[in-house]
Simulated scan of single mutants.
Amino acid sequence: MSQKSAMNIFDRTAKKRQRNVTAMAQNYQVFNYLKDEVGFRLSDRVFDINRKFKCGLDLGCGYGHVSQHLSQDAIEELIMCDHSEMVLEKAIGPEDSSVKYRKVVADEESLPFEANSFDLVVSSMSLHWVNQLPNTFSQIMKCLRPDGVFIGAVFGGDTLFELRGALQLGEIEREGGFAAHVSPFTAIRDVGGLLNQAGFTMLTIDTDEIRVGYPSMFELMADLKGMGENNASWIRKLHLHRDTMFASSAIYKEMYGNDDGTIPATFQIIYMIGWKPDPSQPKPLERGTGNVSIKDIYRLEEAVKEATDKIVKQTAKEIDPSDATDGKSR
Rank of each mutant, 00 (worst) to 15 (best):
Q3V: 12
A6N: 12
I9Q: 15
F10E: 08
D11H: 05
T13V: 15
Q29P: 09
L34D: 05
K35R: 15
D48N: 15
I49T: 08
R51F: 14
G56F: 02
L59M: 15
C61V: 00
G64H: 00
S67R: 05
A74L: 02
I75T: 02
M80I: 05
E85K: 11
M86N: 10
M86V: 08
A91N: 04
A91I: 04
G93A: 01
Y101F: 14
R102H: 12
V104P: 01
V104F: 00
E109H: 03
E114I: 04
A115F: 02
N116S: 06
F118L: 07
V122A: 01
S124H: 06
L127R: 03
L127D: 02
H128E: 07
V130A: 11
N131I: 01
Q132E: 10
N135W: 08
N135D: 13
Q139D: 10
K142S: 12
D147N: 05
T159F: 00
L169K: 15
G170L: 00
E173I: 08
G177E: 12
A180Y: 06
T186V: 15
I188Q: 05
G192P: 01
G193W: 08
G199A: 00
G199C: 01
T201L: 06
T201C: 13
L203S: 07
T204D: 05
I210L: 03
G226E: 02
E229S: 04
N230C: 03
N230K: 06
N230S: 13
N231G: 00
S233K: 10
S233L: 07
K237V: 12
L238Q: 14
H239Y: 13
L240M: 10
E254A: 09
F267A: 09
I270E: 09
Y271W: 03
M272Q: 14
I273C: 11
W275N: 08
P279S: 09
P282H: 02
R287H: 10
G288K: 02
N291S: 13
S293C: 10
Y298G: 12
R299K: 09
V304N: 12
V304T: 03
E306W: 08
A307W: 06
T308E: 14
I311S: 11
Q314L: 07
I319Q: 12
D320T: 00
A324Y: 13
A324T: 11
K328Y: 14
S329K: 11
R330Q: 13
